[in-house]
Nucleic acid binder design. Sequence first.
DNA 1: GTCTATAACATGATAGAC
DNA 2: GTCTATCATGTTATAGAC
Lengths: 181, 181
Amino acid sequence: MLRAAAELFVAHGYSATTLRQIAESAGIKAGSIYHHFDSKELLFSVVLDEGIDVMVQAFHTAADVTSDAPAPSRLLAHVRAHLGALFENGPFTTAHVTSFFSAPHTVRAQAVTRRDGYENLWSALLNDLFPQINRKDLALHRLILFGALNSTIEWFDPAGNLTLDQLAAVVTNQFLNGVQP
Amino acid sequence: MLRAAAELFVAHGYSATTLRQIAESAGIKAGSIYHHFDSKELLFSVVLDEGIDVMVQAFHTAADVTSDAPAPSRLLAHVRAHLGALFENGPFTTAHVTSFFSAPHTVRAQAVTRRDGYENLWSALLNDLFPQINRKDLALHRLILFGALNSTIEWFDPAGNLTLDQLAAVVTNQFLNGVQP
DNA sequence: GTCTATAACATGATAGAC
DNA sequence: GTCTATCATGTTATAGAC
């Protein structure tokens, strides 16, 4: 049922998604939702939290596998992990990208706070990979990278010609070397 | 009043914004809106169209000014123009980024169609600037760049230490050369 | 061109039976 | 844990006076 809710939130945004739709998609009636969640806002909060968990877990898996690899390989693994969290691990992570602006302010504020942990993981990683670049610049580069990664859900089609591995390679290479061939 | 509507759509998303809010913010009553627009969807459509106009106009201005400059300067001018459309020219362009996913499918489909024109301008520009790179790769690089540019509205503060000119320079340099210092 | 009033309906949430 | 009501309210949209 959390999954059903997340899918609808992703598809229509927070306020356009009704509890009746969620209930129907989960095979129950609307009133029954309140036995599990005290409010619609709280339900959405749980969906977002789940999304963060998926991303954090993907990050740590990538970190374990590539801890002693060269910098470009490590970066590629983490880019691939983030994209995997978006495209392969359900609608929870995607909700952060599509439904964030349609959520009430209180929910947004909570989500931002919880996302900090994940973003700090990335900051530490980049500082570790590129010790010669100062941290302020690196923080900007991270935001640019995040923007590029998250916006892929607006145009990337996992069933298309380009695979996720290839997409990760393109984004990583663009991040490291720019467009110059 | 279009401006008031756009600001509210940006702040709360499509469906969380009510006609009463828009009317109040415009200094009239809700019923009066229907003398100007036939429906809420149509009102939002007009807001989005206005946003595209702003972006296209910014593009052409940048093109006129830098038509015979070297490639990096031309790219920088266009990046700056796009960011200017987002941060300096009102809430119409921003609506495309923040309120897109909370809008009804019909409105989304229209917006996508209308945005094609603007995206084609960019495709032509990049093909012109980087003739040595094949067009398929360049199309991917454009999508990555767009993602980075549009997502700046989630974190960039025009009143902060970093200026728009500096932001444009950082993004352009990252796009051309990557993070390596 | 704006107002008031209202129709017609959808929404989040609650109460109590089973 | 799910159901069937139902409440109270808010929503888009319309009709007609001014």
